[in-house]
Amino acid sequence: MTTIVTDAGFAADDWNRGYAKPNAAANDALALHLEPDTDPDQVPLSPGLEMIRVNFPSFSDGRGFSIARQLRLRGFAGRLRACGHVLADQYAMARRSGFDEVEIDDDLAARQPEDQWLARANWRDHDYQSRLRG
């Protein structure tokens, strides 16, 4: 079981249509799963693509934040999910980088319960970036 974290707190996963790998055959995929060594420029963004999930194998590997940012810069407007070892303390970073939500396993959800994530649901506040760019 996994938990999905959004600004509203914990919820069950409502995505049950699977993920494809971002290779040539994924041109008309509905959803993609990316590893952190993916070059975001090479990800096929077809019109039917609804969801991209980016894996964080370790919380200390911050490549996923740049991947999210660059996918948004390329115009991807669908659902963007971070999954894996993401800490509650990183929730604001994930949201500010362009992720909509975070997928964590039950262990992590038990150790870092909902209130620790909700504490960062105010990620729009105290944000230097929003003061520097349009």
Binding site: F59, G62, F65, R69, M93, A94, S97, Y128, Q129, L132
Partner: peptide, 13 residues
Amino acid sequence: RQWSTDHPEFQFL
């Protein structure tokens, strides 16, 4: 300083 402080992309380089 302002730009790099808490920059969401670059806290886990």
